[in-house]
Simulated scan of single mutants.
Amino acid sequence: MENFFTILGGMGTLATESFVHTLNRRTDAHRDQDYLNYIVVNHATIPDRTEFIKNPSLENPEEKLIEDIKIHSQLAPEFFVIPCNTAHYYFEEMQKSTKIPILHMPRIAVEAIGENFPTAKRIAVLATEGTILTGVYREELEAQGYEGVIPDEALQEKVNRLIYQEVKENKNLNFELYHEILADVALKMDCEVTILGCTELSVLYETYDLAGEFNIIDAQAETVHRTLLMMGKEDLLDEHK
């Protein structure tokens, strides 16, 4: 197979399914041959990224991630996509392990702020505790001239519940809790834009269209957009026009 890319997924599986579904839905295709060539690797048994970041005595997922990168680099994809924000804590080491470019999901999300909300300065980040602790979004926001704001303890508990208990454990796309969290950000955090920096939140973003009510940048949706551009395809839902 030529002219393809590789999706390193399974972190979690529903989020990987959401990435693929969003990618296909936004591809301008009228026959089988119009869709993109790609390989999906659903490595569901990679150790939990957030659990390790919070407790380094647990199994480190970095070794498994780098092993996957090395194995699948042998097939020579155009680039890798990793639909897991927390895994980007290991981005530098993963990229060092291959000559194949790896798309940086948090960086792509932050770059999209200026395209969609050019006057915004104060940006909220909703993500796993692991992603928050690593500072991957804070670093990208500061590097691009934004102020990054993270939830307080009470709001982070709601985000954790939505990600882990609702979506991951029970496959429940809890609209009421999702809307409540976004409303809390708008009312209490004084931020112009909210980044959804967790691919479980991206599943909710794909399902419920709240763009008319809240200023949202979804990291996964922006990575889908970048993927389509890099593969020379039009994005049917291009919000950047």
Rank of each mutant, 00 (worst) to 15 (best):
A219T: 13
E2N: 15
M189H: 14
L229Y: 00
R122C: 07
Y164T: 10
T223D: 02
L155D: 14
T22Q: 05
N172D: 13
L75S: 13
K241W: 01
A112K: 15
F214Y: 13
I123T: 11
L237Q: 14
E59C: 09
H104G: 02
I69F: 00
L141W: 11
K54W: 06
D184W: 12
D28W: 02
P106C: 04
S73K: 02
P47C: 09
D238G: 04
L229G: 09
N60H: 06
G12A: 01
N60G: 07
T119W: 00
F175Y: 15
T45V: 07
D152F: 05
Y208L: 08
G130A: 06
T86M: 08
H88G: 04
L126E: 10
E166A: 09
H30T: 13
P61Y: 00
E17V: 14
I39D: 06
I102P: 03
C191V: 06
E62C: 12
T223R: 00
P118L: 12
Y146W: 10
I69G: 10
F117V: 07
F4R: 05
R138I: 09
P118K: 06
L187V: 11
I108V: 08
N215W: 05
N42A: 15
H104M: 02
T134L: 04
S73L: 04
R138M: 10
H72F: 15
L204V: 03
G135Q: 03
I71N: 14
Q144E: 05
F214E: 08
F4L: 03
I195P: 01
R122M: 05
Q95N: 08
L228Q: 03
I150S: 08
E153H: 12
K168E: 09
Q165V: 11
E142G: 06
Q95A: 09
I69S: 12
A127E: 11
G148K: 11
E63S: 15
A87W: 06
L36I: 02
L187D: 15
I195G: 04
V136Q: 13
E93I: 05
Y89V: 12
L162T: 01
F52C: 03
T22V: 02
I132Y: 09
F214M: 04
V149T: 14
I82D: 01
E78Y: 01
N172W: 10
P106R: 05
G135S: 05
L8P: 05
F4I: 07
I39M: 12
D190R: 15
A143G: 11
Y35I: 08
H225K: 08
D190S: 08
